[in-house]
Write a protein that binds this DNA or RNA. Structure first.
Length: 279
DNA sequence: GAACAGGTGAAGT
DNA sequence: ACTTCACCTGTT
């Protein structure tokens, strides 16, 4: 377990293992955390801005204890035992290397709408471009936040996007993805998609529901289920996981990782993308 | 310029 | 059920 203290404008978390800010914020699960000049990550989630960094084995998160308990503790998934997960996933040389390489990854408990919308935009784009489109969405349609002299923006609600017209989304430069975003926003605003219902459904039923939306296929649906609804059995297969499957000696069957296969996926994805593996 | 990118859906076998 | 292709845009 870990200890938490309020230190100035920060909450200090000590005794926490398996937390890497760079691995967590740059493993591809999120698009709104950026490194500042001091190496700290600054971002916005659930309408709150924060600065997060590690120093001398402690994790520091700006804001009050109340904010920490309400927002950041669950968001950063601090209460999960990642030693146990990594032990479970490391069943051979390949998976051992992947879990070691990605040590410190945490599965962010992200907002469902933000996750759905971001991954609709992500198709056939690299991370810099995804980030640009997401930031354009927030700057144009989100609410401004003043954070340490910088102007940040919240992620706009589905209701806000739903009332826009297609041409309003031209500022995103998102091409053929724009109508997908708009129809998803309207499905949420109209109550056609209700996230609270999806939470309580079995993964396969929730999957069917989001697959019915135009422009959402298996990959985006699984990313949404995993990152936005914490359906840890969802296992998104993208080009990097396909590379890992080619390199893996034998068959890479998600079911071998049990109900947390999606977390194993993050280690495998990060390993395939960042470790310089060649197919 | 051409090819390709963290995908999807339609149309063709 | 599997393969091919166009799709908008930004980057080699």
């Amino acid at each position: 377990m870990f200890s938490v203290y309020e230190v100035g404008d920060f909450v200090e978390v000590s005794g926490l293992s398996n937390f890497s800010t760079s691995h967590t914020f740059e493993c591809g699960q999120c698009f709104r955390w950026n490194k500042d000049e001091d190496g700290a990550y600054v971002g916005v989630a659930f309408g709150h801005a924060a600065k997060i960094f590690k120093r001398r084995a402690c994790l520091y998160i700006s804001g009050t204890m109340d904010e920490f308990e309400k927002i950041w503790r669950p968001y950063l998934d601090l209460d999960r035992d990642y030693d146990a997960l990594r032990h479970r996933f490391a069943v051979d040389d390949f998976t051992r290397a992947a879990t070691a390489f990605g040590s410190g990854i945490r599965m962010l408990k992200q907002d469902p709408w933000e996750t759905l919308c971001s991954f609709i935009l992500s198709q056939c784009c690299n991370i810099p471009r995804i980030k640009k489109m997401v930031e354009a969405l927030c700057e144009n349609f989100g609410d401004p936040l003043d954070f340490e002299g910088k102007k940040l923006f919240t992620f706009p609600s589905a209701e806000k996007i739903a009332e826009l017209s297609l041409s309003n989304l031209d500022v995103l430069r998102s091409g053929y993805r724009a109508p997908y975003v708009l129809s998803a926003a309207r499905a949420v605003a109209d109550g056609e998609i209700v996230f609270e219902e999806l939470y309580s459904m079995p993964t396969c039923d929730a999957r069917k529901k989001v697959l019915s939306l135009n422009g959402i296929g298996p990959k985006v649906a699984d990313c949404f289920l995993l990152f936005g609804l914490q359906k840890f059995d969802a296992f998104p297969v993208d080009t990097w996981i396909k590379k890992a499957q080619i390199l893996y000696p034998g068959k890479l069957d998600p079911s071998r990782f049990g109900p947390y296969a999606g977390i194993a996926q993050q280690y495998l994805f990060f390993y395939a993308r960042e470790s310089g593996l060649k197919v």
